[in-house]
Structure formats: C-alpha cells, structure tokens
Computed example of a mutant assay.
Amino acid sequence: MVKKRIDEQLWFRAGTGLTATVGLGLLLNWAGPSLVKLPVAGQVFLQLCRVVNATCEDADGGLQASSRPDPKPTDRLGIVPPPPPPPEEHEADLAALQSDSQGNSLATAIAIDNLDGKQPLRGETNPIDRQDFYRFTLNGPSTVQVLADGTAAAAAILDASGKEILTAERGPAGVAIDRSLKAGTYYAWVRGSRRRVGTYNLMLTASAIDSRPSDDTLSTATHVSILGEAQNFKDWVGSADEEDFFRFELASESRLNLMLEGRVAHASLLDRNGERLERSDRTDFSDTLGRTLEAGVYYLHIERDPRKEGAYTLNLSATQDEADAES
C-alpha cells in the first residue's frame, strides 16, 4: 500500500511537471517574441524559451532563440537518437581534390629503371585521380612481380601497345601479380578505390629466366648428338618462352630413349618435316618415350602446359641394334 502511494505521488508530480512545461512552452511560443525584447527581463524569458525549446524569435530578425539546436534531441519517449553517419571521405573534400598529369596515361607513364623491388614506389589516388601507369623494359625473359597495397584496388600488366596481359583485384594482403614476360617494354597499371583518398606502395621486381628463346622454331632448334651415352638438357617454359625445339640425326636405325622431368611440359617426337609422330601426355614428375626409329633427321618439341611454367630437364639417348652395331 505504501509503495502504491509513493508511485501515485511520483506519477502525479511527473504529470504536473510535464503539464506545466507544455503550458509554459505554448505561452512562450505566443508571447515570447515580445517578452524577449524587454530591457532586463528579456534575458530571463530567453533562458525560459531555451529550457522548454520554445520559439522566441525577434520579429525584426535580430534575435533568434529557435535557431539553436537542442544539444541532445530526443523523441517523445525520451530516447536520444544516434548521430547521423559521417559522409564518405571523398564527398567532404571532393571539390578540393586535384588530379596530377604525371603517370595518368601511357604517354605520361612514370619510367622505372630499377626493378630489384628493394625500394617501393609511392603513389597517391583519389576519386578524381584514380590511376597511375609505370613503364619498364626487360632485356630478356623474366619473371615479373607486381605488389601493391594501400588505396590500390586493382593492378594490371600491359604490353607496349597498352593491351592488358594480366590483371588482379585487391585481396586480403593487397594486389599481387606474378607473371613471366618476354623481352620488351611493358606497363604496370594501378587503379585506386572509388571512395578512398590516400597513398599506396608499389613493388616492381623482375628476375631473369635461364631460358633460350632462340630455339623456338624448327629452323633454330638446338642441335643434339645423342648417339651413345645419355645427355641432359635443362631449360624453361612458360608465358615468356612457351616452346623449345631440339634437332637430332640418326645414321642408322636406333632406339630413342627420352625422359622429361618436371611438371610443366609435354614432349612430342616430330619427323624432318615437323609432323608429329608421337606425343607424351603426362606432365607429372617424369615422362618417358621409347621408340625405334629409322635413320634420318628428327625433332623433339617441348611444349608448356598452358596452366604452368617453370624449369624442366630433358634426358636423351639413342642405341643401335646389336646387329647394326657389329656391322
């Protein structure tokens, strides 16, 4: 019973206070613009207007009490609403953003002479200036790595004409590209985010490949004398050097023994006109090919697996029949 009376008294006081506040606010909305003009009492009425959030504007446009927002606006239930979300970074300063001309096109690409990757290149992107181009030259077949972080959203490698060779989108660790390229001039392209303003670090690294690009045709095939003991040849195939040719000649009927070690290529046996006689289909650790051949000129074609690149070892030997060897 006592608790009930206390609760009734609290509700009565709260209701009375709310009624008084609302009544005072209505009164000040009606008479406030005139009361705040009083020489001394005007400041008191102005404070009352602010307390009850009434409209007490000066009719002459000088004093505007209602222009001051409530520092903690509440709804009818007394809950303070959350603040509005901050604007996007680029929206606040979009008018102040600028675009530099350096590196924004193939014609103005930034030339890179040192591709050791030790010193990262620092660039800046924003919604107005979103892309940068870097030009580099390879003197021979090389493996090129492109790594970008910060505001870089994507990166690509372009050929000398600006045609895209390989592109990559940003991942958890940034943007990464690893690709073998032939000798020539290329471009690295970095694209920034649509909304972010800031900097990125670009690492460009080139490592020369131990490969012979001159043996890529029948006419430039590597000449091999394979009669007798086995011989080993090491080379490399990939995007920068997709195939190799080896030429050998048999003076008499012989058995060819071939072993290709590596997981990156197929081996094909060709006649003197380049027509395929046999092809190995395996690209696991090692592949063997054995066949008896008549006297004549032959070629071996080492062709990369389209999905792979790397080094391989070719083991070749040819043995004559015993009867032919004795004669």
Rank of each mutant, 00 (worst) to 15 (best):
K3D: 06
F12W: 06
G15S: 12
T16M: 12
A20L: 12
V22C: 00
G23W: 06
L24S: 03
N29V: 09
P33D: 10
K37T: 14
V44S: 10
L48I: 08
C49T: 02
R50Q: 14
T55G: 12
A59I: 06
G61V: 08
L63E: 12
A65K: 00
A65D: 09
P69A: 13
P69I: 08
D70R: 08
K72D: 10
K72R: 14
P73M: 06
T74I: 09
D75G: 09
R76P: 00
G78F: 01
I79L: 13
P82D: 10
P84S: 08
P85E: 11
P86H: 00
P86S: 05
P87G: 06
E88A: 12
E88R: 10
H90I: 02
A92I: 07
A95C: 07
Q102C: 04
G103T: 02
N104L: 06
A111N: 09
I112Y: 01
D113L: 05
L115M: 02
L115Q: 03
R122C: 11
R122Y: 05
E124D: 11
T125L: 13
N126Q: 11
N126Y: 07
P127F: 02
D132N: 11
R135V: 13
P141Y: 00
T143I: 06
D149P: 02
G150L: 06
A152T: 13
A153G: 11
A154N: 14
L158Y: 09
D159E: 07
E164Q: 14
L166D: 09
E169F: 00
E169T: 08
R170S: 07
R170I: 04
G171E: 12
P172E: 15
A173D: 15
G174S: 04
A176M: 04
R179E: 12
S180G: 12
V190F: 04
V190P: 03
S193L: 13
V197E: 13
N201H: 12
L202P: 04
L204R: 00
S207M: 08
D210N: 15
S211F: 03
D215V: 05
D215R: 11
T217F: 01
L218N: 03
S219C: 00
S219D: 15
S219V: 13
T220Y: 02
V224D: 11
I226M: 11
L227A: 11
Q231A: 14
Q231R: 14
N232H: 08
F233Y: 15
K234M: 09
E242L: 09
E242Y: 09
E242T: 12
R247H: 05
F248N: 07
R255P: 00
N257H: 09
N257G: 10
L258Y: 01
M259R: 13
M259Q: 10
E261P: 01
H266S: 14
L269T: 03
L269G: 02
N273T: 06
R276N: 02
R282Q: 07
S286M: 11
D287Y: 08
T288H: 14
L289F: 01
L289I: 07
G290F: 03
R291K: 12
E294V: 11
Y299Q: 03
Y299V: 02
Y299P: 04
H301R: 15
I302T: 04
E303M: 01
R304V: 05
K308R: 15
G310H: 05
A311V: 04
A311E: 12
N315I: 15
N315C: 09
S317P: 03
T319W: 00
D321S: 13
E322N: 10
A323E: 13
D324L: 15
D324M: 10
E326H: 06
E326L: 14
S327P: 02
